[in-house]
Amino acid sequence: MAASAVPPPPPGSEHTDEPGAERLRRVLGAATVVRGTALSGGLYNSARLLELSDGRRLVLKTAPRASTPALTHERDLLGTEALFHRLAAGTGARVPAVLHHEPAGAGTPAEWLLLSYLDGATWDAARDRIPPADRAALRRELGASLARIAGVTGAAFGYPQPAAGLSAPDWPTAFTAMLHAVLADASRFDVPLPAPTGFLAGLPERFRRRLAAVRRPALVHFDAWEGNVVVGRTGSGPWRLGGLIDGERAFFGDPLAELVGLDPFGSAEDDADLLAGYRSVSPALSLDTGARVRLALYRVYLALVMRVESVPRAYEGGFAAWLDTWSAARVGEQLAVLDALEG
């Protein structure tokens, strides 16, 4: 997970594992790479922009080696990204086309994924150039696109990669597994938690009735903040949505969870334009007490993920200190929300 207010990862946290030239040549055919440029912004997988001899521009994403320390759900993430983009494309959403995905295995030390490149700039990079009227239209367009994506139904709830073992036939069980996994990761990496482990682990059972209201495993990007939204314009025309990228954190679950990933530090449900766009496709979206309970639970989960991942990613200095302080405050804030809603 990344967000616009998060500083870049410290030097030395990057990795450079990439598929061998011969394997890449087999995928590209007659085309050759004339230039490769590292892309910034990712905090787990690496990405390079490949400019080809036939004029195409592609994105090559490479995962860390399997031996690299990672959270439980951070396995086979590029397989999740490939699945997300394929499913989202079927809804008409603008996403990169999946050209090739290769899991780690014999002769392949790290999973890799080859995608088409979406022209434009990320929303966070272009933010200061987007006038308010265009921003409102973009938020409505983004909301409608995410609502269409949420219309995709998975075979089970939770993370789709089998290696993580974090899926289940119902949402309370899947979310319990997801939350318990990050708590176990905190123990494994010796990360202090902002509340007692047992108390946090008991949240899904405490609010099981609210979680059980989710009956359909909807496709959720869960990382659709402005750094993963591509925008663009033609000449001096209006800014338009260019597409969604980086679907590696996707899961099947409560479509409301998308609001948490859209704004990790705030509350996207307060964005009237976003909700108007979402409800233009899915008018039944509700923000009743049960929905707000679930939103608070998902915010606790995301804050814990961001807190715990700082250790295996070796964040240091001011960034690590900021993340520690922010995540503790965020968890405390959302626990207070839960108490106020259903004390």
Score class of each variant (00 low, 15 high):
Met1His: 12
Ala2Glu: 12
Ala2Pro: 07
Pro8Trp: 09
Leu24Pro: 09
Leu28Gly: 05
Gly29Thr: 02
Ala30Tyr: 13
Val33Ala: 03
Leu39Asp: 08
Leu43Trp: 14
Asn45His: 11
Ala47Asp: 14
Leu50Met: 12
Ser53Lys: 01
Leu58His: 00
Ala63Ile: 02
Ala63Glu: 06
Ala63Thr: 02
Ser67Arg: 10
Thr68Leu: 01
Pro69Glu: 10
Ala70Thr: 07
His73Phe: 13
Asp76Thr: 06
Leu78Ile: 03
Gly79Leu: 01
Arg86Lys: 09
Val95Asp: 06
Leu99Ser: 03
His100Glu: 15
His101Pro: 00
Gly105Ala: 05
Gly107Met: 11
Pro109Tyr: 03
Pro109Phe: 03
Ala110Met: 09
Ala110Cys: 08
Leu113Gln: 04
Leu115Trp: 13
Ser116Ile: 01
Gly120Pro: 06
Ala126His: 02
Arg129Met: 12
Leu138Cys: 08
Glu141Ala: 14
Leu146Ile: 05
Leu146Asp: 13
Ala147Met: 06
Ala147Ser: 06
Ala156Asp: 00
Gly158Cys: 00
Gly165Asn: 02
Leu166Cys: 03
Ala174Ile: 01
His180Pro: 04
Ala181Met: 04
Asp185Thr: 07
Pro192Leu: 15
Pro192Met: 15
Leu193Gly: 06
Pro194Ile: 04
Thr197Phe: 01
Gly198Cys: 09
Gly198Ser: 12
Glu205Phe: 01
Arg206Phe: 10
Phe207Tyr: 15
Phe207Asp: 15
Ala212Asp: 11
Ala218Asn: 11
Leu219Ile: 11
Val220Leu: 03
His221Glu: 01
Asn228His: 08
Val230Lys: 05
Gly232Thr: 05
Gly237Phe: 12
Leu241His: 07
Ile245Ser: 13
Ala250Glu: 00
Leu256Glu: 15
Ala257Pro: 02
Ala257Phe: 15
Gly261Glu: 07
Pro264Lys: 05
Phe265Lys: 08
Ala268Trp: 08
Asp273Glu: 14
Leu275Thr: 00
Gly277Thr: 11
Gly277Val: 06
Gly277Leu: 13
Tyr278Asn: 10
Tyr278Gly: 07
Pro283Thr: 11
Leu285Ser: 04
Thr289Val: 05
Gly290Leu: 13
Ala291Ile: 01
Val300Ile: 14
Tyr301Ala: 12
Ala303Gly: 08
Ala314His: 09
Ala314Tyr: 01
Tyr315Asn: 14
Thr325His: 11
Leu341Asp: 10
Glu342Asn: 02
